[in-house]
Amino acid sequence: MPIRPADQIMHKAAWLYYTHGLRQDEVARHLDISRASVAMYLRRARENGVVTISTSTQLFAEDVLARELEDAIGLKGVWIVPEDRQAMDPASEMPVVAAAVFLELINKGDRIGVAWGRTVYHIADVMPNADLQGVTVVQLCGNLGAPYNYRPDQCTTEIARRLNAEGINIYAPLVLSSEDLATALRNEPVIREQLASISDCNLVLYSVGGCESDSHLVRCGALTEEEMQALAEAGAGGVIAGQVIDRNGQRMECAHNRRCISADLSSIRSIPKRMMVVEEDAKFEPLVSALNGGFVSHLVVTASMARRLLGRWAAGGNRRMAQQAQG
Rank of each mutant, 00 (worst) to 15 (best):
Y150W: 15
A115M: 02
E158T: 14
S177M: 12
A182L: 10
H122Q: 12
A184M: 13
E166I: 07
A99T: 09
N164C: 08
R186S: 14
G142H: 11
I123L: 02
Y121F: 06
L105M: 09
Q139L: 03
T157G: 09
L103R: 12
L174R: 09
V137M: 06
V175Q: 14
L105T: 03
L103C: 05
L174F: 06
T119K: 01
P95K: 06
G134T: 06
L103S: 06
N149C: 11
N149D: 14
P95W: 12
V137W: 05
N169E: 10
D153V: 08
Y150I: 04
D153L: 06
A98W: 05
T119Y: 00
T156E: 12
V138N: 11
M127K: 01
N169Q: 08
V114C: 02
L163E: 13
I170P: 07
V135R: 05
L144W: 08
N107A: 11
T157S: 15
I170E: 09
D180I: 14
Y150T: 04
Y121M: 03
T119C: 01
V120C: 01
P147I: 05
N143P: 07
V138Y: 08
F102K: 06
P128R: 03
V97H: 07
V97T: 10
V138I: 13
D180V: 15
I112G: 01
Y148Q: 14
E179H: 09
S178C: 07
G109A: 05
L185M: 15
V175E: 11
M127E: 00
V97D: 06
G113P: 03
T119V: 03
N164D: 13
L144P: 05
P95I: 05
Q133R: 08
R162V: 07
A99D: 07
V97E: 05
T183E: 15
C155L: 09
G145V: 06
I168C: 08
Y148W: 11
I159V: 10
E104M: 07
T119Q: 01
A130P: 00
L140F: 06
A160M: 07
N129F: 03
C155T: 10
N169A: 12
I112W: 03
N129M: 05
L105D: 06
V97Y: 08
S178M: 09
P173H: 07
V101N: 04
G145H: 12
C141T: 10
A98R: 04
R151T: 10
L132V: 01
R161G: 05
L185Q: 05
N169F: 07
Y171V: 14
N129W: 02
Y150C: 11
K108R: 12
S177C: 05
L163K: 10
L140W: 01
Y150F: 15
G167A: 09
I159W: 09
S178G: 10
P128C: 00
D125A: 04
Y150L: 02
D110E: 04
L176I: 02
T157Y: 13
R161A: 09
N129V: 03
A165W: 12
V135G: 02
R118Q: 04
D110F: 05
L140R: 04
